[in-house]
Write a protein that binds this DNA or RNA. Structure first.
Length: 193
DNA sequence: TCAGTGATTAGG
DNA sequence: CTAATCACTGAG
């Protein structure tokens, strides 16, 4: 989708300039979307709207622009690779739940669990429109530990919507996982607009 | 380039 | 209990 071009999503025409139409409400993604393999879900999340209902009642919609896939069963870079711990517990549930963890003493990371039960996978949300960076994203949206385990399918305060926007998705290596070594650190499992 | 900052984890 | 690690960010 080019900057400034118009497209019709849910019947409402609006300009796409990497910002969402606050009046437009797309289709909420259901369980089926999330229980697929993480390598299918991750690129499909690009261009979808992350919707958050803030404590004051206002609702924000943010186009997802950058994500990374973590595939526990075969991926040394995935936190669940070594097995189930209290932190990674939620990744063993079926897709649609949130995996939140704290890192570097300052930042909460927002991940969406994917796949079937007992197949630990998750998608790290690295960026949304105008908020580039996983730590900055959670900081500015107020996402913290209280969102751990939240279900995107049933939650009243956070979910994902499809408004028909289908961007061209690029991909490349994931960031910050040198420690995982080859072949994992070179897997092209980072997806972005 | 490099320090800050604290939950989580593995290991004794 | 202890120490190492870390899906990052911002300043210099």
């Amino acid at each position: 989708m080019q900057k400034g071009k118009k497209h019709s999503g849910n019947g409402i025409k609006w300009k796409t300039k990497f910002h969402t139409n606050p009046m437009a409400s797309g289709t909420k993604l259901s369980r089926d979307f999330f229980i697929r393999d993480v390598l299918d879900v991750a690129p499909d999340l690009i261009g979808k709207n992350l919707v958050i209902k803030f404590p004051d009642g206002t609702v924000g919609r943010y186009i997802v622009t950058e994500v990374e896939a973590y595939r526990g069963s075969e991926d040394k870079a995935c936190h669940a690779f070594k097995g189930r711990t209290s932190r990674t517990e939620i990744m063993f549930h079926e897709g649609g739940r949130l995996y939140i963890y704290f890192i570097y003493g300052m930042y909460w990371m927002l991940n969406i669990v994917t796949g079937k039960e007992n197949d630990p996978q998750a998608v790290l949300i690295r960026g949304v429109e105008n908020i580039d960076g996983p730590g900055k994203l959670t900081r500015s949206l107020g996402i913290d530990r209280s969102y751990y385990g939240e279900d995107l399918v049933t939650s009243e305060r956070i979910w994902i919507e499809n408004d028909g926007f289908t961007p061209i998705v690029k991909n490349g290596q994931r960031i910050g996982i040198e420690y995982a070594g080859e072949p994992w650190k070179s897997k092209p499992w980072r997806y972005y607009i």
